[in-house]
Amino acid sequence: MNIQRIMMIVDASYHTRRTIEHSLREIDRRALNAMVLVKRHGKALAGYGVVAQAFRERAANLKEAASHLQESIAPLIQAHMCILQHRSYADLFHRKMQEMYHYDIICPTFVRTEKTWERVIIAEEAVALTILRQLIKNVEKLQEGIAEQEYVVIIGRIEAALSEGTGAPLMRVSRDMGMAVATVRDAIWKYHNQLEEILHESNIGI
């Protein structure tokens, strides 16, 4: 895989992680806001309280899932950087061999060393691929969590409509919740597609 491709994953991972972190924080705060409203308005909003609680718990789960995401992003990047590092060794030997060939010198140890680096790189690429697959799995798990969260948002909208009369701004809170969840959903969906593309390319490469 070329370096531009790798830098693209790096950038995409950085952006996705930032978006998720920010949106999860947002989700958590919306949920907290809802719970404050529920506490403040007492029993009248008990139904919404259950939703807010569920929303907040799911937000915590999402946070947990997102941290697993990071656990595979960093190794993936490190693995690719190792490949880059070792590729530079291999290239160095390859270049020197060609230069020596130009002077009619053949050094068999150089050839062996170059081959050794190639083998190391192939092994490392296999490792990187495994990490990539794991990362995609983690992303999919996060997507499931988001789907659950979207369901809670819908329930929340219904509850909010039911407790319209209490004067608490639940409709707005529900809408904000929905928007925060949608932001994460879109970001993670895009990231998933990018990773799938890279996986596809890697498979072809092997």
Binding site: M7, V10, D11, S13, Y14, H15, R17, Q70, A74, P75, I77, Q78, A79, M81, C82, L84, Q85
Partner: peptide, 14 residues
């Protein structure tokens, strides 16, 4: 380098 790079991209976009 690989360690430095991986740690850096967690906080700064390369």
């Amino acid at each position: 380098f690989p360690q430095v790079f991986a740690a850096m991209v967690e906080v700064v976009q390369p």
